[in-house]
C-alpha cells in the first residue's frame, strides 16, 4: 500500500466511524460535533483524491456553515446537553432502520466492489485546481450554476419566511398538552 492509500484508508475509517457515532450518539451536541469530524475527514479524502477546491468548499460550507446552523438549531430547540433516551425512534423502527441501512450500504458496496475491483488510478491533481474548476463552472456549467444561485436565494428567503412568525390561527393552543408535548 502506498502512502496516499494509507492516508485515504485512515481518513475513510475516521469519516465512517465518526459518522456512525453521529447517528448513534445519545448526546445531541456530541452528535453534531461528530458530524463535524466526519465532514472534516471527508474533506481530507477529497484532498487525497486531488479535489482541492471541493475539499475547501466542504470545509467552508459544511463545517463552517451547515454544522454551525445545526448547532444553532440545537440551541434554539433547547436540546438537552445530558444523555437522552428520547433521541431514537421506537425499538421496532430502529430495527427496521438497521436492516435498511445495512441493506442499502451492502447493496451499494457490493455493486461498487464488483464494478471497481482493484482498480488503481493516477491522481490528477491539476484538474481539481481552482483555475480549472473556475473555468469549468463559468463555461460549461454556467447555467446550472446560475440556477443554483437562484435556488439558494429562494431557499434562504423561504427559510426566513417560514421561521419568522407562526400564523395565529394555526396555533393548536390548549391541545398541546394533551398530546404529551413538551412544555
Amino acid at each position: 500500500m502506498s502512502g496516499p492509500d494509507l492516508l485515504l484508508t485512515a481518513l475513510a475509517l475516521l469519516a465512517a466511524a465518526s459518522g456512525l457515532l453521529a447517528v448513534t450518539g445519545s448526546r445531541v451536541v456530541h452528535c453534531a460535533l461528530w458530524l463535524v469530524v466526519s465532514l472534516g475527514a471527508l474533506a481530507g479524502v477529497y484532498l487525497v483524491l486531488g479535489a482541492e477546491v471541493v475539499a475547501l468548499v466542504q470545509l467552508l460550507v459544511y463545517v463552517g456553515a451547515v454544522v454551525v446552523l445545526v448547532i444553532f438549531a440545537l440551541m434554539l430547540t433547547r436540546a438537552p446537553v445530558e444523555p437522552s433516551d428520547r433521541l431514537d425512534a421506537p425499538k421496532g423502527q430502529k430495527l427496521a432502520a438497521v436492516v435498511a441501512g445495512i441493506s442499502v450500504g451492502g447493496i451499494l458496496a457490493g455493486t461498487l466492489i464488483y464494478a471497481l475491483q482493484d482498480l488503481t488510478v493516477k491522481v490528477q491533481g491539476e484538474q481539481g485546481s481552482a483555475r480549472n474548476i473556475g473555468r469549468a463552472v463559468f463555461s460549461g456549467w454556467l447555467l446550472p450554476f446560475e440556477l443554483l444561485s437562484v435556488l439558494l436565494l429562494a431557499a434562504l428567503v423561504a427559510a426566513i419566511a417560514v421561521s419568522r412568525h407562526l400564523p395565529a390561527e394555526k396555533r393548536p393552543g390548549q391541545s398541546l398538552t394533551e398530546d404529551g408535548g413538551v412544555q
Binding site: A12, L108, L119
Partner: peptide, 25 residues
C-alpha cells in the same frame, strides 16, 4: 496510483449510516 475501492466502500458505508440516521432518529 491509489486504489479507488477505499473511497467507494466509504461512500457505501456513509450511505448506510445516513439511511440508519434518517430512519432511527
Amino acid at each position: 496510483m491509489i486504489h479507488l475501492l477505499g473511497p467507494a466502500v466509504l461512500a457505501a458505508a456513509l450511505a448506510g449510516i445516513g439511511v440508519y440516521g434518517i430512519l432511527a432518529r
